[in-house]
């Protein structure tokens, strides 16, 4: 008789994770998944035209930019940091792209990658200041929030700039490659899918959870915490760059006030999606559902004919409700599987 068998007699060992239903109920995303389903049902029953394919596809299109930036923010929040400058960065990079194309005459094929590169670099700078000088990231990126908005206004003289008229460019980022499906929706799908995979299955993803969950344990285990954090900042900056390219392709111009308050929607999506601001918990899939909820509620309020100002109130209540629900789920899953 092997040791394994001897022990198996004494107590039950089950590493399989249990049935699909059990795994689903134990998953951290269960709360947000249930909320999405309920909100979907309410909208489907209550709002005329909500379930129409056109309407759903336009919701998907509207949350594309939110979903892309929130994917990056998920990495940052799980690693225990935050970036409040994504809204300003989004505006600045959109202006930068339009400015390069229209005012400087740089081909859009060069200007677009440059926008992503700028986003990555600004993320790296935010990350290096945060980790090297040990300044809380919300302070560092609050400063960046102000500075980047100023830079966007300076670069554009405070007025919108025309974007690229290159057809291939608009087609790639704002066309509809499939009937009724917008290109930006597909970009979001790709970013979310790759992000979820990287977070859940790669060594980098494991490091992100470890560093955010217990920084000193991660350091003790030989994980280069600072490098992991800087990479999360860089990723968020780069994805914000992608979001700006999509926006310029979509609207055909860049407004220096773009993304004002956007950071709140992004953080809301991540938090509604089950991430804890203390770090160590959260998932890209949860964030995606968080973005969907935000999009669906906004859409439903429009369909219900509710005053636009109520949307803000709804967003606030949504964040509060989500945080309270997550608190309950976290308590429960501490004693269950699949944290």
């Amino acid at each position: 008789m092997t040791i394994q068998q001897q022990i198996a007699i004494a107590y039950r060992v089950d590493d399989s994770g249990g049935s699909l239903v059990r795994r689903l109920l134990g998953a951290r995303e269960f709360g947000v998944l249930a909320a999405t389903a309920v909100i979907f049902l309410v909208c489907a029953v209550g709002a005329d035209g909500f379930l129409a394919a056109d309407n759903l596809l336009s919701v998907a299109q509207q949350i594309a930019i939110l979903g892309i930036v929130a994917t990056g923010m998920t990495f940052l929040i799980v690693v225990g940091e935050i970036d409040l400058s994504v809204g300003s960065l989004h505006g600045f990079l959109a202006v930068e792209l339009a400015w390069l194309v229209t005012k400087v005459g740089v081909p859009v094929g060069v200007a677009a990658p440059l926008a992503i590169l700028t986003g990555v670099m600004i993320g790296v700078i935010n990350g290096l200041i945060t980790t090297r000088f040990k300044i809380p990231s919300f302070v560092v990126t609050l400063a960046a929030l102000a500075a980047l908005r100023g830079a966007a206004l300076l670069l554009s003289d405070g007025v919108p700039i025309r974007g690229s008229r290159n057809e291939a460019f608009t087609h790639l980022f704002a066309g509809s490659p499939l009937p009724n499906v917008a290109a930006q929706t597909l970009w979001m799908a790709a970013v979310v899918a790759i992000g979820a995979f990287v977070m859940a299955r790669t060594k980098f993803g494991y490091d992100v959870y470890s560093v955010g969950g217990n920084p000193s344990a991660a350091a003790g285990a030989g994980i280069a915490s600072d490098r992991v954090k800087v990479m999360c900042f860089a990723l968020t900056g780069g994805l914000t760059g992608l979001a700006s390219i999509i926006l310029v392709g979509w609207l055909g111009s860049a407004n220096p006030l773009t993304g004002n308050g956007f950071e709140l929607s992004v953080i809301a999506a991540v938090v509604v999606g089950g991430a804890g601001l203390a770090g160590g918990t959260g998932s890209v899939l949860g964030t995606f559902l968080g973005a969907v909820i935000t999009g669906v509620i906004t859409n439903a309020l429009v369909l219900f004919g509710v005053d636009g100002n109520w949307q803000q109130v709804a967003t606030g209540l949504l964040i509060l409700g989500a945080v309270m629900l997550n608190h309950l789920v976290a308590k429960r899953s501490a004693h269950g599987l699949n944290a």
Binding site: Y206, Y209, G213, N214, S216, A217, A218, G220, A221, A339
Partner: peptide, 20 residues
Amino acid sequence: QNLGLVDQRSVAANVFLGQE
């Protein structure tokens, strides 16, 4: 004494922490 465990992660992930 503080064990260096990441509370939110699984037993398996903690046994392999940093050496997955």
